[in-house]
């Protein structure tokens, strides 16, 4: 590489700014102290030990980190934790009920084998959840469009579509 930039002309100052942030995650209120630059993904995983949202790319290209904020599917790797002050967040851990009963989306994913390695699955499930909350009977095209922000390298896509179709009430 030409004139590779000399390492860090302006290294970080010794004390990075912190904030106290209040998040409601899966219905439980949390108060955490984080650096302002901490992403929601890192806050969930490192501070709250909720590892269901996965780091896949770190720049909003893969969807493995998808969580719901106020019901809307977003990428937690591109979201600052401080920007979520007071917001309600749902992660995959919050989808099944406390007595262990699965959400219909989760059950459909299992029944249709809509997963292989499963690393992208929490994000896929939440993206599907957000779609159905907005549109309980999506068409095939609407399902595919809604799921197009979640990459699956194993290629579980046909089965994800099948799960979506079943959830939308289409005959299989």
């Amino acid at each position: 590489m030409p004139n590779a930039p000399s390492q860090s002309p302006d290294a970080a100052p010794t004390a990075a700014p912190h904030r106290t942030v209040h998040l409601t995650v899966n219905g439980i209120a949390h108060e955490i102290e984080v650096e302002t630059r901490r992403t929601l993904l890192d806050a969930l995983r490192a501070d709250l030990h909720l590892t269901g949202a996965k780091p896949g790319c770190g720049m909003g290209d893969c969807g493995a980190c998808t969580v719901l904020i106020e019901g809307e599917a977003v990428y937690s790797c591109l979201t600052l934790a401080v920007a979520c002050e007071g917001r309600a967040i749902t992660t995959i851990e919050g989808l099944s009920s406390s007595d262990g009963e699965l959400d219909p989306v989760q059950s459909a994913f299992i029944a249709h084998d809509a997963l292989q390695c499963g690393f992208c699955t929490p994000g896929q499930v939440l993206a599907m959840k957000a779609l159905l909350a907005r549109n309980p009977h999506p068409s095939d095209d609407e399902i595919a469009r809604a799921m197009s922000g979640n990459l699956c390298r194993c290629g579980a896509y046909p089965k994800i579509l099948a799960a979506g179709r079943a959830l939308a009430g289409h005959p299989s």
Partner: peptide
């Protein structure tokens, strides 16, 4: 982009 990015 993607649905998530459009929501953000």
């Amino acid at each position: 982009a993607t649905p998530q990015l459009r929501a953000m």
